[in-house]
Design a protein around this nucleic acid. Structure first.
Lengths: 215, 215
DNA sequence: TATCGTATATTCGTATGCGAATAACCGTAC
DNA sequence: GTACGGTTATTCGCATACGAATATACGATA
């Protein structure tokens, strides 16, 4: 056993899952993912779709079943999942569910470097973000309340609930951060110093905190 | 104005922020990011570091200031940020703070495809995940309680608080999901059906819900 | 003093991600 | 009947990410 890592692109997982259902051709996979709103949770680019299918093929997780042609249209190749592919699907799902993977949200990176913006500017931007997040949560909530979705078993909607839960957590965090900054958090006086008297404040930071934390 | 998009790699943002502080050479940037625990929030691969520096150079956001050599060691090039680079740093930070960007956590993808695993298996895996998340939250919490961190201004630790907030939200979500599955959520009978009598259940799903939600 | 592991510092080759190009078909509106 | 915009379906080429390789210095240990 060579114990290869799973493909890096989650779109490959979606392909395996779809072919676990029944054989189909790439374009159809894309259409179905879209119909089922899965592209909200799994990034879909047709370019990548064909790339990952080629990868799955090379690894022996899927196989070409037939290539059909309709008039002078480009050929369509119908793929099916193999036994190894089913094993891979199972193993991959197992890993993803059981083990949290380290990820790098862009907002976290920005927070990391927050001191490079003056506090009043940061505050204004965070307020904008908060409004946009609020709009987004309302959007997801009303979407989930939609009559045609009410008849769908919740099992098929978990991912939206998860997204909503994370979004609300971020909303609370940002609202809280804003309040804290408003009441002198930072400490503001130090934060302002970075922008008002760069040299002196940097020197002070290096002296007092070993330079370790800054930026 | 060609209005180019920001570089795709957040490591480039970190480079700009570091050079905003003072000129330095690539390896030093890596060391500092590590010292300050920023690599927890910004993925650091030395390979990528040199790639993004080349990118920033081509865009005119940074410039080579001097290349020094120490004995027979490889040359080190010291870079500095340019005026355009400072503008870019400011614009990029502004965008990241004010606008939530769509991201694709792997766990969300897995939840999307949850029906491909039998419910009892999924349940066991979610319990494992919950334990690991709990361990992780405790780890972050105790890290934040660490004596040497208590003296650091909170401004320099926001990103950890954010990470903790999201992690706790996921923890609550997973704990809740487990409880719901335990009490028949799914509905379990349908979910089991997918694995016990594939054909029949799939047919039923297609008939009752238009095939739209599955997998 | 030979050897080994670790820190310093960068380059290179490869696989992947994806925007853009391609191209045929189809309905409809003029 | 033809011009159009949208849908079907895939290929291609370029830029990026990053693991692995490279090469020197240096301190410890045997």
């Amino acid at each position: 056993m060579t114990e290869r890592p799973h493909p890096s692109n989650p779109l490959a997982l979606a392909v395996l899952a779809l072919l676990f259902e029944r054989p189909m051709h790439p374009y159809e996979m894309g259409v179905i993912l879209r119909q089922r709103h899965k592209e909200e949770s799994i990034k879909l680019r047709y370019g990548s779709l064909y790339t990952v299918i080629d990868l799955l093929l090379r690894r022996g997780f899927i196989a070409a079943r037939e290539t059909e042609r309709d008039g002078k249209r480009p050929e369509r190749t119908v793929y099916e999942i193999t036994a190894v592919g089913r094993d891979e699907l199972h193993a991959w799902m197992t890993d993803l569910l059981a083990e949290p993977v380290k990820e790098y949200p862009q907002f976290e990176a920005a927070l990391c470097l927050l001191p490079v913006l003056p506090p009043d500017e940061a505050l204004a931007l965070l307020r904008q973000r908060l409004m946009r997040i609020e709009a987004k949560t309302v959007e997801i909530e009303t979407h989930l309340e939609t009559p045609e979705l009410k008849s769908i078993p919740p099992l098929f909607l978990v991912e939206s609930e998860y997204r909503l839960a994370l979004l609300k957590a971020e909303q609370r965090f940002v609202a809280d951060l804003i309040k804290r900054i408003e009441s002198g958090w930072g400490p503001l006086e130090l934060w302002r110093g970075v922008h008002e008297d760069r040299e002196a404040t940097m020197a002070r930071i290096y002296k007092e905190f070993g330079g370790a934390p800054m930026t």
